[in-house]
Write a protein that binds this DNA or RNA. Structure first.
Length: 472
RNA sequence: GGUGGGUUGGCGGAGAGGUUACGCACCGGAUUGCAAAUCCGUGAAGACCGGUUCGAUUCCGGUACCCACCUCCA
């Protein structure tokens, strides 16, 4: 069996991966808050952990991996949108408008992530479906003396958990010293965080032992991972910005609620996405959505390729140049594997991925496999093509159904015309008409390939079918 | 201020204590009516200063610079 090694944030080192149960490997990844379209930064963990999911399925078997990615559908930004719609005269109660907003956002999220070739996780729980489990967990923390109620809030007492700060390598005292936020006066300790907060009539709320209210942000992941994966599971993933406070708080809650359990054994964090060298973030306002990129003509497969070509633990700069290169490579690989059937993936590709998801290493191997096929045009390379195809598909690339962008339109009539003009020109020695048509085709983004064997037209980067109409 | 990470050839971007990463670009060749595409091939690196070593870009220490987290964020 392939030996998987993963970098564990908790130990700050690469460790050999051994699941609790190889017949039931369990992975939890923090999903989106569904208040708006996913931006490109949101897509990075999706692609990274989708690749991990694919690797785990390859190694342990498709039916032996449980992957949970939540939807956070309790959030003040969602409430704000619903309230704005309500005030603008939208039909329905506030609750219905909230539900409408989260439903439409989840629909967008699915469409956008599908476009990136991400498999749907085994479970996609919504926070609102687990309120009861959260209340039960909070009550347990209160009973054990890890949480306290004050002014309608329930707060986690960080001093009751000695390991608080271990994941992110900081101590409670250091954090207080550097704190930049105003501390609510009712907190026992500045770092105590909210498990439950009161809701007034204008906000969604649920009845609880502490009155009508709603959960804090962190408790949902603890409750849902417990319900769906158990008190101890294998891998917990998310963006590095979640390491503190979100994941630190999850650990505190879960370990205190379920003493003796491991919670997540391996913690994996992807680095941030940069645009123009700056972190893409809401506060900087420099983010753009996956949908915008797709609509600009960047295929999902191209976006995925770019993401996988930088290691997940390094910042990745999104550039148009990388997308251009990715598109060219994918076109090449697609043409090499056209008509091939996927066989087993190449062992070196698997090994590269198994080494802490070394996407760039896997890509290098794919290039080598492609070169072996391309440099043997006299052979049919049935086996090699099948291996290349299966290997790329392990990365979520060259999947059938993802390649519509590379299919293009029917260029055969233009090829026929160009062939006729060329044959006439060969006789007359006047190549001007041929060159004119060729130039027009190139202008429309078509690659013009002429050889002794004939003429071949292939859509290239920047292909624009609209410019072809007048050429026939 | 605290914590963590980074610095590789023109650009992007990996692994490994000693042997070509890889891709793009460039250059040379094949091919082509000319091109394009494709194929073949060459060159090019490891921020700085020390240490360990027969040997370090790779390990250790220091310096400089960059970035992130400590506030909603993937």
């Amino acid at each position: 069996m392939t030996a998987i090694r993963l970098y564990n944030t908790r130990s700050r080192s690469k460790e050999g991966f051994t699941p609790f149960d190889p017949l039931d490997v369990r992975l939890y990844v923090c999903g989106p808050t569904v208040y708006d379209r996913a931006h490109l930064g949101n897509a990075r963990p999706v692609v990274v952990f989708d690749t991990l999911f694919r690797l785990l399925r390859h190694v342990y078997g498709d039916g032996h991996v449980r992957y949970v990615r939540n939807f956070t559908d309790v959030d003040d930004k969602i409430n704000a949108t619903a309230l704005a719609r309500h005030e603008a005269g939208a039909k329905g109660t506030l609750e219905e408008l909230i539900h409408q907003r989260t439903e439409e956002t989840i629909g967008w999220y699915h469409a956008d992530m599908d476009a990136l070739g991400a498999l749907r996780p085994t479970f996609e729980p919504r926070a609102t479906e687990y309120i009861g489990a959260m209340i039960a967990m909070i009550q347990g923390l209160v009973d054990k003396g890890h949480a306290y109620e004050v002014e309608g809030h329930v707060l986690f007492d960080v001093r009751s958990y000695p390991d608080y700060g271990r994941l992110s390598g900081r101590s409670v005292d250091d954090m207080i010293a550097g704190a930049r936020v105003e501390v609510a006066p009712y907190k026992r300790d500045a770092m105590d965080f909210v498990l439950w907060k009161p809701s007034d009539a204008s906000l969604p709320g649920w009845e609880s032992p502490w009155g009508r209210g709603r959960p804090g942000w962190h408790i949902e992941c603890s409750a849902m991972s417990f319900e769906l994966l158990g008190a101890s599971f294998d891998i917990h993933g998310g963006g590095i910005d979640l390491q503190f406070p979100h994941h630190e708080n999850e650990i505190a809650q879960s370990c205190c609620a379920h003493p003796g359990s491991d919670f997540a054994r391996v913690w994996m964090h992807n680095e941030m996405l940069l645009v123009e060298g700056k972190k893409m973030s809401k506060s900087l306002g420099n983010f753009f959505t996956v949908r915008e990129l797709l609509e600009q003509g960047y295929p999902g497969e191209v976006i995925r390729f770019v993401m996988l070509s930088t290691h997940y633990r390094k910042p990745m700069d999104w550039t148009a140049e990388k997308a251009r290169e990715a598109e060219a490579v994918l076109r090449h690989w697609r043409s090499l594997t056209a008509g091939a059937e996927p066989l087993g993936p190449d062992v070196e590709v698997v090994d590269a991925l198994a080494d802490d998801l070394n996407g760039a290493g896997a890509m290098a191997r794919l290039h080598a496999l492609a070169k072996a096929i391309a440099s043997n045009p006299q052979k049919d390379c049935f086996y090699e093509k099948g291996v290349l195809l299966a290997s790329a598909q392990l990365l979520g690339l060259l999947e059938p159904g993802m390649g519509d962008w590379a299919e293009g339109v029917d260029l055969a009539p233009l090829a026929t015309k160009l062939t006729a003009l060329r044959e006439a020109a060969m006789a007359s020695k006047d190549f001007a008409p041929v060159d004119a048509l060729k130039a027009a085709l190139i202008e429309a983004g078509v690659e013009v390939r002429m050889s002794k064997a004939g003429v071949e037209l292939v859509p290239g980067p920047g292909f624009d079918a609209a410019k072809l109409g007048a050429l026939l």
